[in-house]
Nucleic acid binder design. Structure first.
Lengths: 313, 313
DNA sequence: TTGAAAGCGCTAACAT
DNA sequence: ATGTTAGCGCTTTCAA
């Protein structure tokens, strides 16, 4: 590997001068600069990033913590982040946690060690306070509402949109609603919002058996729907956390030859357009976009991304 | 930030000994090790990755070069890579190129600077020889067939499967086939294979106007199909590079109130199952899996991933 | 304008 | 078993 030393030696100038043509070219005489640059080209030199980072004490890396690589929720956010990162020259590292708190903590340590300039939590298991404490080491952005905590966030106002969606369901005459989500209300803010919206609109608690947990993909949706169809035929509407999942529900009822209930999903994926069922669009790419820009900027800021309900019949 | 020096000073042992408890604990007396570890915990110390990398001259980072973040082709490969990387503790950085050769070259430089232990090219613009030359600096894996070049690869045997698919089309009685792809035969090996398969099965060249270029998503597919429907009503079959894209084609013909041609896509996405059209599964997640394992292992190896045709009516 | 030298935090010989 | 020291490749004072 050719280093800055080689360039110095061969060009006949000192280390410091070579470093200056890289970092402060305005402080170097035109002629020497030209010579040194020529040598750099000749040797095919380019500065070692690791050394540079160590010396500077910073990187241009952003870590994106995601519990789950499969769920479209996260893919959409990542898409938005990538798009925003590209023109800035920042690198983004994907940091999967598999919903493991200890692994999240390990990533936080890497932030502490300056492996990343900032970190985006698309979701989290760790107590919020641990994140807040870690902001000393680098910028941290949450993709969920953090209230007034001292941590930047780009988040969706899910509750009003959920209410709107559930009102639509109610007004369409459905009364026996089942929900499919990944994590329960204790773990997930989204699920909490959804249950709250249900309460607000229907004026009662959702029966436990009508909240199907652990649903992450279309296959899960299919299986859960088979179960519902067999054990709870009264259900006349299924709201799932993703259009593809909702499509799985559709296929299950169809394959079982049962009357297909009303269905609704989220993210306005292709499947809801093909099957023409309503959906909730959280605008996750926009959210990723904003999350990235917060991650590379100092200070705490909270930014709301409005979601919306798309009615279809 | 607390460093190894702090740990040394406070524990009363030397730098080297502290370093040893981190890297070669077996060479340290049980008692001193215990003391030092206690201090580490107390100080909430963890080694600085950048310094460690610089000293060692390696990282545990894998860079994944992708031209395009949106196309499902790449998402599926990335999914496979992430899944394979997770248990190994390697980090993966996404490196978008936007199909720009110079940007690919820049990433290659970062490999040279040891920013990555290895690099996976899901696709490339650069001449293969440039990649081969760069293997001196780190492991490079191509996700396309590289023949006998000295560079590892995990690739799909597309040609036979394309032939099988086109034979199915022919035997189903279709004769006026249009293809939708992203890049032309000059740029893309996939497209070359596809055109070759067409030649082999139909015994003639595909008309230029029946090869629709620049198609990357469902929207593109929709637009291209509108164009086809308007300008070339003889077309009776459309084969698109992705099921969602093919679904866009379906919707276009439907929205235009025209007779819907036969359609076929790739990747066995949800949409082909919903609309029940045939597809070609390239098993891209498996491919990503293999690409990753090749990236963290020495030596050159070529690994074929069999794709298959899924007939549906 | 250029050069010399210290330091970023760590690892690994080598010496004790 | 533990300590000392010389790097890894770079940036940035500070001095010339």
């Amino acid at each position: 590997m050719t280093t800055i030393h080689d360039v110095a030696r061969i060009s006949g100038f000192s280390l410091g001068t070579v470093s200056n043509v890289i970092n402060h070219p305005e402080n170097v005489a035109r002629k020497t600069r030209a010579k040194i640059e020529a040598v750099m080209v000749e040797l095919d030199y380019s500065p070692n990033v690791m050394a540079r980072n160590l010396s500077l004490g910073t990187t241009r890396n952003i870590g994106v913590v995601l519990p789950n690589n499969r769920h479209p929720y996260f893919s959409y956010i990542v898409d938005g982040i990538m798009e925003a990162a590209f023109p800035t020259g920042y690198r983004v590292s994907l940091l999967p946690t598999n919903y493991d708190e200890d692994i999240e903590r390990r990533y936080l340590r890497e932030l502490q060690q300056k492996a990343y300039a900032g970190m985006i939590f698309t979701s989290r298991q760790l107590p919020l306070d641990e994140l807040v404490r870690a902001t000393r080491f680098g910028q941290i952005v949450s993709c969920e509402n953090v209230g007034t905590r001292a941590i930047s966030s780009a988040y969706s106002d899910r509750l009003p949109t959920y209410e709107q969606a559930l009102r639509w369901i109610k007004e369409s005459g459905y009364t026996q609603v089942a929900l499919m989500v990944q994590r329960g209300g204790e773990d997930s803010e989204t699920t909490r919002d959804l249950l709250q919206a249900y309460r607000n609109v229907f004026g009662r608690e959702l029966a436990d058996s009508r909240l199907r947990l652990g649903i992450a993909n279309r296959r899960d949706g299919y299986d859960a729907a088979c179960f519902l169809a067999a054990t709870d035929p009264a259900v006349d509407f299924v709201l799932a956390n993703g259009d593809d999942i909702a499509a799985g529900v559709y296929m299950a009822y169809k394959d079982n030859g049962q009357k297909i209930p009303g269905i609704m999903g989220t993210e306005n994926q292709l499947s809801s357009q093909l099957l023409h069922f309503p959906t909730i669009n959280h605008h996750l790419e926009t959210l990723g976009h904003i999350a990235f820009s917060l991650a590379i900027r100092e200070g705490v800021r909270h930014q709301l991304v409005k979601s919306d309900f798309i009615a279809r019949n």
